[in-house]
Amino acid sequence: MENKNDQLPLWEVFIQKGGSPFKHEGSIHASDKNMALQNARDIYTRRGEGRLIWVVPSSSIAATTVEEEAEFFDPADDKIYRHPTFYKMPEGAKNI
């Protein structure tokens, strides 16, 4: 078939709006960074959804996996003293 595997590389798109952190918005196909930025602009910001864009080749993203999830996050699971609710407040003390 003529059109097999003829797509441009995949990029992940992150956009920042206002003072918020960059947020993953989706992905696009592009041959290089300039095209990736332009395509991201045309697909994800047609109505002022943000003024700063990051594009990253999808293949460059390292991610945690569901299989390792339990083991990987285990160190934080038993440290309830990291939460303010762990502490007893003396009777009569208002918010610190």
């Binding site: 003529e2 059109n3 003829d6 441009l8 041959s31 290089d32």
Partner: peptide, 14 residues
């Protein structure tokens, strides 16, 4: 199919 050469060209360029 007519866009095929464009995809090839931009890949070659990058």
């Amino acid at each position: 199919n007519e866009g095929q050469w464009v995809r090839q060209a931009v890949l070659a360029y990058s």
